[in-house]
Design a protein around this nucleic acid. Structure first.
Length: 460
RNA sequence: GCGGCCAUGGUGAAACGGUUAUCACAGGGGUUUGUGGUACCUCUAUUACGGGUUCGAUUCCCGUUGGCCGCCCCA
């Protein structure tokens, strides 16, 4: 009896397992790509050496600013418990609802590739007891983020952000200085941006405002598009930056969030604006600016390329941020810990740099080429190469090539100013040839002195 | 997630449904033994993948995948 039951159960179990495997196999086949079709995943890309100079400029610039304004570098993991983001970003946001790379790791935990780094930064602040450091704790990060949304202009599934976060100080000067840093970042790169700014108050005043907003738009419900109806349901604040053409008219008489701010938030906002005026950072008040993630309160801001407004920017904001005074507490940190920060989309900055024709300053530009003939020369050359390196002179080579002609071709293509040529004869004589690539003039010098001679030549 | 446009070598393009799929550039190798920026020769594509229509498909149709763009959302 017992045995029969077991057999029965196991048969059923086996059957379902087989069915499952079949379903899985079918899915796998469907998703698998032809072996010849060797590409990256959708929305993921390789950055090739030619593009790297732009990235270096962006990264260097951000790092220098971080150093100057005393933001400590914080490197964070790419993978976190999924829960960290689910708790903080807001249940109704797309980032949580459908864009996160969530999976079960081999230990059985629900983990997620980070879609952004602010929640992580706060997690690290709490984890490492940073409340015991002098406040505010100023942190800077950069790295890859992951969101599974549809690739588009300036939008990738893996993208890079750098961010500045200041945790533990409520004074509006923090907000203002962060905006200054952001604006300076672009100015240093030769990009003109416009700062858009707004205040969304506290979560309580926002709630009251949202109710008012909803009741206002309910009156026009039948005029609204499907998208806007959905916003009305799910995320009414989004109605404010809806791109529907009829919206401009409707918004004219709609309640304004600034009118609903509590006294403290209003004061805070005024002070931020005063600081900005003091330091002469041009800004544009945008009463319809709301941020997508739930943790923001009071000051919110975004930066766009000059000449573009938020509604027409082809790839959205280059940088955005704001205050998030409730987040530390929400994650279990000390009650009432204030914070403010921003994140910048580096892909968008790189593309703006290219668009603007900014010179990226390639770093690797060797001006000396070493050409060799024969095994003895190659052996010597390998050594000589190291001697140049010790003197910090960049030398290019093509040790793999045999003929002098081929090597000179390479030297020419890379625009070398000089080629030093070492052949059988020179090895025996202890000499070496220096060829000026512009004039074609050559001179034979003592092999032992070539490094110091080149050193002098390159200074001129 | 929804919609529009698109898909030929490393790159940019060409080929009325009919030969060994053409051209330019880039790249590799060479034009007899040690000299580049000019020449010549030569090599590098099962036309994204899968299916269908057809005597015959790079060309027409469907699906998949991917890219660009708009929406949603966001950096």
């Amino acid at each position: 009896m017992m045995a029969k039951k077991i057999i029965k159960a196991s048969r059923v179990e086996r059957a379902s397992r087989v069915a499952k495997v079949e379903v899985e196999a079918e899915e796998t086949v469907k998703k698998q790509r032809a072996p010849k079709d060797l590409t990256t995943l959708r929305g993921f890309r390789d950055v090739l050496p030619e593009e790297e100079p732009y990235w270096n400029r962006v990264r260097d610039n951000a790092r220098q600013l971080a150093e100057y304004y005393s933001f400590g570098r914080l490197d964070l993991p790419l993978l976190e418990y999924a829960d960290l983001f689910q708790r903080t970003l807001g249940k109704a946001t797309d980032v949580i609802e459908k864009e996160m790379y969530v999976f079960t790791d081999p230990s059985g935990y629900d983990v997620a590739l980070r879609p952004e780094a602010t929640a992580q930064t706060v997690r690290a602040y709490i984890n490492h007891g940073m409340l015991n450091r002098p406040q505010p704790v100023k942190l800077y990060y950069e790295g890859q983020m992951f969101r599974h949304d549809r690739p588009q202009a300036g939008r990738y599934r893996q993208f890079n952000q750098f961010g500045f976060e200041s945790i533990g100080e409520a004074d509006p000067i923090v907000d203002a200085q962060l905006i200054v840093i952001g604006e300076r970042f672009f100015r240093d790169l030769g990009l003109n941006v416009v700062v858009e700014i707004n205040s969304i108050g506290t979560s309580e005043t926002r709630k009251a405002y949202v109710m008012e907003l909803v009741s206002y738009f309910r009156g026009f419900r039948k005029n609204l598009s499907e998208d806007d109806k959905r916003r009305l349901q799910k995320n009414p604040l989004r109605l404010l930056d809806s791109k529907e053409p009829y919206m401009a008219e409707l918004l004219k008489d709609a309640p304004q969030i600034v009118d609903w701010l509590d006294e403290a938030s209003k004061n805070h906002f005024m002070k931020v604006l005063e600081f900005l005026e003091e330091i002469e950072v041009p800004y544009r008040l945008n009463p319809h600016l709301v941020r997508g993630l739930d943790y923001y309160n009071r000051t919110v801001f975004e930066m766009y390329l000059a000449g573009e407004t938020s509604s027409e920017a082809s790839q959205g904001a280059l940088l955005s941020g704001g205050r998030y005074d409730g987040l530390v507490e929400m994650l279990g940190g000390r009650e009432g810990t204030p914070a403010c920060g921003f994140a910048c989309g580096m892909e968008r900055v790189v593309s703006a740099l290219k668009e603007a024709g900014v010179d990226p300053n390639p770093r690797f530009q060797p001006r000396v080429f070493f050409a060799q003939l024969g095994d003895a020369a190659r052996r010597k050359g390998l050594r000589l190469f190291e001697e140049f390196r010790a003197e910090h002179i960049q030398v290019a080579e093509a040790f793999g090539k045999g003929s002098l002609k081929a090597q000179l071709e390479v030297a020419n293509k890379m625009n070398a100013a000089y080629t030093i040529i070492l052949g059988q004869k020179e090895v025996l004589d202890g000499t070496i040839i220096i060829r000026d690539m512009d004039s074609g003039a050559q001179e034979i010098v003592d092999a032992g002195k070539v490094v110091s001679i080149m050193q002098k030549r390159l200074v001129l």
